[in-house]
């Protein structure tokens, strides 16, 4: 991991040692302090944006090899004593229900892919950021050194999201021939992606909320690195 270690040697990791656990020294050590005006800060969390809508389930063919043909049911002997319409409707309805229930163990959506993972839109957006930064770095080598840490962060975020999604995570779409975005476009994409990650963090379960919060916070810092 490319995490920085800015803390002095011998200091505990951040989360491991709550500040109150530190022994208090004499109050005389406190330096006189100026009053702190509550300056306005740039909003760290932006209003939650809606995530890009999930892709609709592909309308695949509802094939079912074990389904008996409907025709034989209709070729039964005509019944003379009952009105014709009702039994036929009942038979056809029974065939239909059997098809829905999955005759012979054949599931209705057996041939369809699983529905998209909730993190799939965020992964796709992250892959797009990786590609966009890559194109800009290639087109503007003077910016490459500055953008490289951000590019690397998005790459690591995409890998983490892929690991969280597990099997079925999509692969990034090839972007050959796409134009390199300028810095302003990168900034807009980064802002949108920051809002998306924050919104996803707020609605995620506990395990995913941590990763999504890290990603949202990282993207906020990227906005300050962009020229």
């Amino acid at each position: 991991m490319s995490r920085h270690h800015a803390a002095a040697p011998g200091t505990a990791p951040a989360a491991a040692r709550p500040a109150s656990a530190l022994p208090a020294r004499g109050a005389a050590a406190a330096a006189p302090r100026a009053s702190s005006p509550h300056a306005t800060l740039p909003p760290a969390t932006l209003p939650p944006a809606t995530l890009p809508p999930a892709e609709p389930l592909p309308a695949g063919p509802l094939r079912c090899a074990a389904l008996p043909p409907a025709a034989p049911a209709r070729t039964g002997a005509p019944r003379a004593t009952a009105p014709r319409a009702t039994p036929r409707r009942a038979v056809l309805g029974a065939v239909g229900l059997a098809a829905l229930a999955g005759v012979g163990g054949c599931g209705l959506f057996r041939d369809d892919p699983a529905p998209p993972h909730p993190l799939a839109p965020l992964l796709a957006e992250t892959d797009a950021l990786v590609a966009a930064y890559g194109r800009t770095m290639a087109a503007q080598p003077a910016l490459a050194a500055r953008l490289e840490p951000v590019h690397a962060a998005h790459t690591a975020h995409a890998a983490a999201l892929r690991a969280a999604i597990g099997a079925g995570a999509g692969t990034p779409a090839p972007d050959a021939g796409a134009a390199a975005p300028g810095v302003a476009a990168l900034r807009r994409a980064e802002q949108a992606a920051q809002r998306a990650a924050a919104a996803a963090c707020l609605s995620a379960d506990g395990v995913r909320a941590t990763l999504l919060g890290e990603i949202a916070a990282a993207r906020a810092t990227h906005l300050e690195v962009l020229p």
Partner: peptide
């Protein structure tokens, strides 16, 4: 943290997973 790293001359000033223990 990123701002203070920048003031300290550290590059990069950002980390990949903010808050995650080393």
């Amino acid at each position: 943290a990123a701002r203070w790293r920048r003031y300290s001359g550290q590059a990069p000033s950002t980390v990949v997973f903010p808050g995650r223990p080393a």
